[in-house]
Structures are given as C-alpha cells and as structure tokens.
Design a protein around this nucleic acid. Structure first.
Length: 926
RNA sequence: GGGCGGUUAGCUCAGCUGGUUAGAGCGCCUGCCUUACAAGCAGGAGGUCGCAGGUUCGAGUCCUGCACUGCCCA
C-alpha cells in the first residue's frame, strides 16, 4: 500500500510537524503590497497576550476564532495579515520579577531602577516567548515576521510622540487628585483596574462634640480610622435635625482639633444619621466636597497604607490595626455610639486583590471627553460595528459615563513618562518632550530629572492598530492595512483596550485614507471614516468550566488547553470551541464534547484510509496514482467541485449536498456563527458523506465492477474529499493538511492547503430532484432496517422485501436503486409489486410507498399495535392542526403562499398516512 | 441601587429575520468486531420549550409581569 496510515488518528506528531512546517515555510508572511494592488485585504491584530502569560482557554477560544476567520479569508484570496505580538504588562511583569528577587532576599530598590529594568529584560528574553510558542502549537496562522513587543524601540517612540502631542493639545494634564491606590503594588491604578466585591462590613456611629454647647453630632462611617484626617462634618441643607448647627464647629475626638460643620449634598438624610464626616484626602466624594468648601486636605497614610505622622499617636500603624485602636479609644472615651452590620462593596486591586486605598497624589490624566465623543460617534454612526449587537449599547453606556483616565503608574517597568522637572532651586519647571532635554528652558539649568512614573500598559496597547503599521511615519502599510478589518476579543477588555483603541485611532488617524482600490475590493467602499482602528469588533464568549463556573486559579478549576490538546488533539479542541461558540452565550467547556470531536477527526482519518485503499488498488503503481492525482484540477478552484462527474443518483446527491453545505458554511462564517459552520460540516461529513455516500459507492469501487466505473467513482471520491478538506481546513487545519498533502503524494500543487481556494457554491451543482429522490430512498432503507430490528431478524440474515408505490416515478427510482436498498438495508431481493400492501400484517405504509419485510417470524402484535396507535395519534393531532389552519380564512389571507402550500401538501400526505395506518391497525384485529 | 443576559431531552447546548413534524452531541436501552473507522455500525426511548398573561391567522421565537439564576457597573 502506498498510503500507509495508522488505523487510529494520532494527532500529536502530525500537528507538531505541520505547525513547524507552516512557520518554516513562512506561509503566512505578508510583504507590503505595492501601489496598484487591487486584491482585497483582511487585517487582524492579535490582542497581545502578556509576556508573563500562559495560554488559557480564553486565549485558545479567541485564537481559534481568529484563526478560523483568518484562514477563511486567506483561502478566499484576501491579502491576509494577522499581526502577532506581546504586551509588556507593567504590573504583572514587574511583580513576576520582584517575586524572583524576593527568593534571593532582595527588593527592587536594592538593585536600583536601571539594574532592575535590565533584570526584567533578561527575564523577558528567557521566558517571555512562552505564550507565543504555545500559540504555534494551536496552528495560529500569524505573520511571525511582523511580531512586535510593546516596548520595542519604534513602538516606544510612538508612545512618546502620542504623549507629547496629547499634552500639547491640552488633553493630558498633571494634578493632585484622589486616585485608586494599591498599597501592595505601591502605585495608582485606573478605575477599571478596581474590582468591587460585596463584603459584610460595619457601620460605626461616632459622636463629635459641638463646640460651645453640650450637644453632639453623630456621624456614620465605615472607615473610622480616616477620622484622624477629618476636616469637616457635613449635613444636608434640607435635614431639619441639623438646621440649628449650620455654621457651628465640632471638636474632632482623639485629635482634639476644631473642624467646621458644612452644608453639603454629600450628606444624605436617609443614610446613617444623616451627618457624615468629611475626609478630603481619603475619599473621592469627600475630596470633591472639600474642593467645594475649600477644606484642608490632611493625608494620614503613607504609600503602604500605614498611618503617617499626621495621624498623631497612631503613626506607623497599619490601617486596619489603626481602625481597631481608634475604635477602642473612641469607645473608652465615650464617643462610639453604635456599631451596625453593613454590606459594602470593597474595591480591590484587580492584579493582587489588596484593598484599594483612595489616595491623594500627584498623577497624570487623560482628559477623556473630547476623545470619547469621537469614539462614540464612530460606533453610533455604524462606522464600527460590534457583534453581538448588545455590546454596542454597553459600549455607548460606558462612553456616556466616562471619567478622566489616570495613566501614570508608580512602577519601573513600562514606558517612562516623557516629562522632566527642573530641580534647580525652586524652579520646578515641567518639560514634556520627545527626547530628553539637556537643560531647563526656563532657568537654563542642566539639573533636569525625568519624572519617575511609567504609563499605564493600556496606554501603549491602545495605539497598536497604527503604531504597528509604522506610525507616526506615513507608511504604505498604513494605506493598505489601516483600518484593520476586525478585532476579536473578550468582553473583559472592551473598555480597557477596545474603547481606548477607538479613542486613540479616531484622534490620531484623523484624515487618514485607506488605499481606495483596496478599500473597495475589500468591501468597505461605503465606509466614510478611515480613522477608526477597525471596521468590526466581535466579542467572544467566556469559557467556563463544565459546571459553568468561571475558571480561576484560586478555585483550582482552570482547564489547561495544552493538557486537553495533548489528550484529544488541537483540531478536536479547536472544533469543540468553534462548535460551542454560539454568539452571546458563555461556553461551559465540556471534555465529553472534545472527546466526540476527536472521534470526528478519527472518522475523517478513516474515511481517508478508505479512500487511499481504493486509490492504491484501483490505480496501483506510481503512474496510475499520478493519473488520479492528475484528474484533480491543478489549482483547486473555489466554485463547486471541478471534475466531479456525477453518474449516479448518489453522485448527483452528494454534489448537491456539498454545494449546499458550502453555502451554509460561508454564510455562517461571514456572520461569525462559528458553531453553525462547525456543525454543518460535521453533519455533512459524517452523516451524509460517510454514512451514505461512501456506503453507496462501495459496489462501484469494488473489484467486480468494471474498471472504468471504478475509476470514475474513485476520481469523484478524491475530488470530493479534497474539496471537503478545504471546507474544513479553517477549523481543523492539521488533519486537513495531513490528508491533503497525502492526496498529492508529497507533491502538492501548492505548498499548503492553507493557500488553496475556499469552496464556494456553484448553483448549477445544486440538484433538488436528486435530493428529493435520495431522501425517499434513505427513508425506505431506514424503514426496512427498523422493521428488521422489530422482527429481530438475525443481523447476518438477508431478507426479501416487497415494495409498492403508487407513483410510477418512485417505482422506477426504487427499481433503479435496488442494489443500494439491498446493500444498505441488508435485503436479498426487492419485489416491486403493483398492488398496495393493504391488510398486510407488519407492512410499513408511508405517503409515498408501502414496504414489508418477508420473514417467517411473526410480528409482535401488541408492540405493533402500540406503535401504530401512537403514530396514528400523532398523525391525527397534526391533521387537526393543519385543518384548523386551512379552515381559517385569516390564515389563508395573511400567511405567505409557500407556507399555505406547504401545509396543504403536508395535509394530503397525512391523510394518506392516516388511512394507511388505520387499515394497518384494523388488519391487526382488536 | 442601575444595566445586560440566561431558563428548551437525564447532562451540555443549537434553534438567525415568528411559519409546515422543536434538533445535536454525550449519556441511556437493544443488537452487531457487516475487512475505512468498536474513537465504529444499525435501531430505539426520552421534551405540555421556567410560570402567568398578552399581541398575532400562527409564538420556543415578539411584548408585559413573576420566579429562579448568572454577569457587569456604582
């Protein structure tokens, strides 16, 4: 045998080999298309995984979907660029290296900034590529020659350019505000990086003595330790209880400081006691109130959330320890009035889980409104479409309630803010510049120091759609590939990343125009705005565990995709994710499904073995095999199946079905209905191609058949199989490549199936009649099998059957396909009779034909009566339904004709069946 | 508190714009190693589509309310 394939499909070795081949051959390398290029272009930016990342199921789903869409476009003749890279991931990476240092008993400050950053680079060189290597195993067809890292010199230069421009436009400002501070990471973080968690807390009521009276005013707080920094007590204007206290002062317990009672909406009469303490340095709302009333800001904590000197005798104590001490002291001194249970939403650091401390500090912000307005407009006007559509509203809601973005981080790893301060005496001049200034522009001193903060990681990743294409230079790459076509990503980073890319893109790429010919060819001729970073966004589902729980390390329910791949193969895993990815719903990853799709891969494999077995037998020897191969079109073309010579019913049928599934799959992929595409191919390949077509052509392939007949059957089989592989390739790239290459005996017309054309429907190859006839035949065969099973006919025994049909065409159809019925229903002779099988015990009578199995064993009368009764009930229920509709004039008037016709035809069939079933029942006696 | 989803067979899920008989995989039952495949083949059982109303000639699909459940934001 020339094509020797093992009996079971073993994905491991095959997948690794092809993954390597694709990369080595640079199959997915995309050179910059020269001017004059007229082919359509498809561009996709890989959401860059963190350098510290390890592949998880979310990545795999994301990458599977991207790869399917990318391969599909490439095969349809698009210049297809999929751009890979990694993100430097500020906090995550710094934490990783700090952890390493800790093992050596060192802290980053022991090394100093430069040494530390060097160390991070070293770490990155060693471990940073891991996730991309894992991607290679998935078969991701990215252009590895364009791989980027967000800290690459060119990308860093672009970041500085953006920063300086925004600063010059007044869209970046520096100021002292309350920010979310992580005491463990020792940095500010953005609102988005804070996760709120409901916890059972307490609400304490503390009474503050009113100066110059015996009265107290009682305030309610969840954070008593911050009272040390109180600079006022607020009451609501409308609150009658406190009207007499307006303008008075209270003496702050423990600190013995006089602070004013202010009237402010911060105090809501229905909350707690209606009076609240005001701590401008430790709460964003209090901060705002403080601004309104020009209050002092007393910061009582340091960067570790320990109390500082301003906290008097509580200095150097941790915030929670301080809370206990403060409460004890208040209680002892009679100031603590009550302690109540209270549910509160506690903000925690997204990265490390530490409780966030609102902290007053000097930070850099992006003035977001002007950017948001344009980003909103891009989606509202449909220049960018979001799929599924409900995310569109979520996006717009967020854009409508957006706050300025804190972009500075007190980290070392990241893009350092291109700003310098003059340290000469009291000068303090702030210089924002693209390159380090040699001297202060104000005082001329050379004592300038760069601001130590770095930028939020998302600042640089938000720029990627244009910076990876050469921005700020105007490049040919931008003309061709910008706007990118699609973004596929997780809902989780819709605001972190997607929204920011849209804001930056619409701002910095204003006035940009995509190459007109390419834009038109790619199908975007109607779009007006080429500044957007992408035309479409597809938000994919969340992968959960089999119990629908969100996967998390702490729960220990993380499913490692590589582990699944090892057991079932990449193709089966990819297929699982595709088949379960109905838009809008999360995926509960279930191994059973993957096991099922491994079986599917095995099915394909064995179908291939069957094909090769026949090729080798019918066309033995190299020359003759070559003849079969030569019959394949040199460049498999997209439309229908070329060189398929339908000579029998099953040929016409499968050709028609192939064109139908092709249409469905293309339609499904065009609308990101991955599950539909996957299921359609599965059903076609297994349920139609393997279960019926292969079985039906076996006689023609067999040795007894004439040589010419076998040859045509064999060639049809190879052509059909080859086209089916192309259809399946985007979802299961490995097994399709392996078999496809085998068909060509290692001398393929193209270097890879990935470069072949994707099948498209040829309407001329759709054959309705063949499909109808085949359906009748299948129904007949299934009915005979069913009766055999009921009669408990020994599996090996062939039985004669008798068939009648009142329509001559159906009689002819059965006569012509007598052999098929005999083979597939295990029948020894088909007796076609002119007489309806009335009063015949055990006959099956359908609307189109009657059939009976001739066998001496008696049918089980009781069981048969049960079956028929049940069937009759069902038929009659449906008849009643149909009649109700057909006798309804409203229905006849309003329903579309094809629906009415359909029901009429169905009613006729049902009536025939009803009569036949009744006569069967009466034949059984009662 | 605000917003968005989900509830269909024992389990996991499809069912796109309302339209003829609600599907699949797994599991289950019966029988087969029928030389491509036991990771297979053949046959079968199993659902008043969460509940209650409404719109419509027609509702799993649209609307309202309720119940349960999940997520996001504050």
């Amino acid at each position: 045998m020339r094509h020797e394939l093992p009996k079971s499909y073993e994905p491991g070795a095959i997948e690794a080999r092809w993954a390597e081949y694709w990369i080595k051959e640079k199959l997915f390398f995309v050179p910059t298309p020269p001017p004059g290029e007229t082919r359509p272009v498809f561009t996709l930016l890989l959401p860059p995984p963190n350098v510290t990342g390890r592949l998880h199921m979310g990545h795999m789903l994301n990458q599977t979907q991207m790869d399917i869409i990318v391969r599909w476009h490439r095969m349809r003749g698009f210049i297809t660029l999929w751009l890979p890279g990694t993100d430097h991931a500020g906090i995550a990476t710094q934490m990783m290296v700090e952890r390493d240092l800790a093992k050596e008993g060192k802290k980053r400050r022991d090394l100093g900034r430069e040494k530390f950053i060097e160390r991070v680079w070293e770490w990155k060189r060693h471990y940073g590529g891991a996730i991309l290597d894992q991607m290679k195993r998935l078969g991701a067809s990215v252009d590895w020659d364009r791989e980027y890292f967000t800290m690459d010199e060119n990308l860093s230069r672009a970041v500085r350019e953006v920063f300086v421009r925004l600063y010059e436009e007044g869209l970046i400002y520096r100021g002292k505000y309350i920010v979310n501070w992580c005491p463990r990471c020792e940095t500010a973080i953005s609102d988005l990086e804070v996760k709120h968690e409901d916890v059972a807390g307490k609400l304490w009521e503390i009474r503050y003595p009113v100066v110059g009276s015996n009265e107290f005013i009682t305030v309610a707080t969840t954070r008593p330790e911050t009272m040390l920094g109180d600079t006022a007590v607020a009451v609501n204007e409308k609150d009658e209880r406190y009207k007499h206290l307006h303008g008075k002062k209270v003496r702050l317990p423990l600190m013995n400081r006089e602070i004013p009672i202010i009237v402010d909406e911060l105090a809501q009469p229905e909350f707690g006691t209606g009076a609240v303490k005001v701590t401008p340095a430790h709460d964003p709302n209090d901060f705002a109130a403080g601004k309104r009333h020009n209050l002092q800001q007393i910061d009582v904590m340091d960067e570790h959330a320990h109390m500082n000197q301003n906290a008097g005798r509580y200095a150097n104590v941790d915030r929670y320890e301080a809370r206990k001490m403060v409460l004890t002291d208040l209680r002892e001194q009679g100031f603590l009035v009550a302690e109540k249970d209270y549910a509160l939403a506690l903000g925690k650091c997204d990265r490390c889980g530490t409780v966030i401390e609102p902290r007053l500090s000097e930070q850099w912000f992006v003035k977001i409104q002007p950017l948001a307005d344009r980003a909103k407009e891009a989606v509202e006007s449909g220049e960018i479409t979001i799929v599924p559509e409900n995310y569109r509203q979520i996006y717009l809601n967020w854009m409508n309630n957006i706050y300025d973005w804190c972009i500075s981080r007190q980290l070392w790893w990241g893009h350092r803010i291109p700003a310098w301060t003059c340290t000469n005496g009291a000068c303090g001049e702030l210089i924002v510049a693209r390159e380090a200034p040699s001297s202060c522009g104000k005082c001329g001193s050379t004592k300038v120091e760069q601001v130590s903060d770095v930028l939020d990681t998302w600042f640089s990743s938000g720029l990627l759609p244009f910076t990876t294409l050469g921005w700020p230079e105007k490049t040919r790459d931008q003309e061709v590939f910008y706007p990118t076509t699609l973004l596929i990503t997780a809902y989780e980073i819709l605001f972190f990343w997607v929204a920011r890319m849209i804001m930056f893109g619409c701002h910095f790429m204003q006035g940009h125009e995509q190459d007109a010919a390419i834009k038109r060819a790619s199908g975007w001729g109607d779009k007006k705005n080429d500044s957007v970073p992408f035309r479409q966004v597809y938000i994919h589902a969340l992968v959960r565990d089999a119990e629908r729980q969100k996967m998390s390390k702490t729960k220990g329910n993380v499913i490692d995709p590589l582990h699944i791949i090892e057991r079932f193969g990449t193709d089966a895993t990819r297929f699982t994710l595709a088949a379960m990815a109905a838009p809008g719903t999360d995926i509960a990853f279930n191994e059973n499904r993957t096991e099922g799709y491994r079986a599917f891969a095995n099915k394909i494999w064995n179908a291939a073995r069957f094909m090769f077995m026949n090729v080798d037998r019918i066309e033995p020897g190299v020359a003759k095999v070559a003849a079969v191969i030569a019959a394949l079109p040199p460049h498999p073309s997209g439309k229908g199946i070329e060189d398929f010579q339908p000579s029998t019913l099953e040929d016409r049928w499968i050709l028609s079905r192939f064109n139908r599934v092709t249409k469905d799959v293309n339609d499904a992929l065009a609308t990101y209905r991955f599950h539909e595409a996957a299921n359609r191919i599965y059903d076609f390949f297994w349920g139609e191609f393997c279960d019926w077509y292969l079985e039906l052509i076996k006689p023609r392939l067999s040795e007894e058949a004439g040589d010419a007949l076998a040859k045509v059957a064999c060639q049809n089989l190879v052509n059909l199989f080859e086209a089916s592989l192309r259809l399946l390739h985007p979802i299961m790239p490995f097994i399709t490549e392996e078999i496809w290459q085998s068909i060509y005996e290692g001398k393929p017309v193209l270097r890879s199936i990935a470069l072949a054309e994707y099948p498209q429907t040829d309407e001329k190859q759709i054959d309705l009649q063949a499909e109808t006839e085949m359906a009748i035949l299948q129904d007949l065969i299934v009915n005979v099998r069913n009766v055999r099973a009921e009669l408990k006919v020994e599996p090996k025994v062939k039985v004669p059957i008798r068939v009648h049909a009142h329509q001559a065409e159906i009689m002819a159809l059965i006569a012509q396909n007598r052999g098929a019925v005999e083979r597939l229903a295990n029948v020894e002779n088909v007796d076609l009779t002119e007489h309806p099988l009335v009063d015949t015990l055990g006959a099956r009578r359908t609307a189109r034909y009657d059939v009976m199995v001739i066998y001496e064993k008696k049918i089980n009368i009781a069981a048969e009566r049960d079956r028929l009764t049940k069937e009759l009930e069902k038929i009659e229920r449906e008849i009643a339904n149909g009649q109700r509709q057909l006798s309804n004039e409203q229905f006849l008037a309003k329903a579309p004709p094809h629906v009415v016709d359909g029901i009429r035809k169905r009613a006729q069939d049902l009536t025939v069946q009803q009569e036949k079933t009744k006569s069967q029942l009466s034949a059984l006696g009662s």
